[in-house]
């Protein structure tokens, strides 16, 4: 599992660096997005990635299903098929996006709230947070009325729960653990 994630990161990084030199980051990003969408269809995925079928016909099927806009994307996909690494195609889009973020010094996170937040509030929260190594935090908003009130923020593997629901849950735990000492 960690071996394959390392592999994915290596390919994504190589692709990103080549794209940046050729000013093709945006185009490649869009291509990877359409690849991910196309491969989300199980029938396409099984023809392109399945165990049966030779490489040439798999590649043909892929080219039919996913028209790519930049030449770099096409070269890269050829390269993957050559090396029999087409298996990483579906996961390439988020890995590439992570490389883009890394280069731009952005870490992405999620803020959850019971009600929609105004854009200005969202930006204010982003500014209040420090990403690791001085990175800028960019938050996506998710609305979940079950939180009742307050905010829950998750960035870079860490979470801050300041929701009413979270507080109630913590209180419940405390009460369950409360020692009923005979004093």
């Amino acid at each position: 599992m960690s071996e394959s994630s390392r592999l994915l990161r290596r390919y994504a990084r190589a692709l990103f660096e080549t794209a940046r030199e050729g000013n093709a980051v945006a185009g490649v990003g869009r291509d990877l997005g359409s690849i991910a969408t196309a491969l989300a269809d199980p029938s396409v995925a099984s023809t392109v990635l399945g165990a049966s079928g030779d490489r040439a016909s798999k590649k043909k099927a892929f080219e039919r299903a996913v028209p790519l806009e930049t030449p770099l994307s096409r070269t890269f996909v050829d390269f993957l098929f050559q090396r029999r690494r087409e298996g990483i195609l579906p996961a390439l889009a988020p890995a590439f996006a992570a490389e883009v973020d890394r280069a731009e010094g952005i870490v992405r996170g999620v803020v959850e709230a019971a009600v929609p937040l105004a854009d200005a509030d969202l930006r204010a929260i982003e500014r209040a947070l420090d990403g690791p190594a001085g990175a800028r935090v960019s938050l996506a908003l998710r609305v979940d009325p079950a939180l009742v009130g307050g905010l829950r923020i998750e960035v870079a593997g860490r979470r801050l729960d300041a929701t009413v629901r979270g507080r109630l849950a913590a209180l419940r735990e405390d009460l369950l653990e409360a020692p009923l000492r005979q004093t």
Partner: peptide, 24 residues
Amino acid sequence: GEVTAVLRQQIASAKARTDWKSVG
């Protein structure tokens, strides 16, 4: 009576415990 006392104490000490926690 004791239960009530314990509960009140717990609730009083359960104030804003909002720390960043590592998650997975």
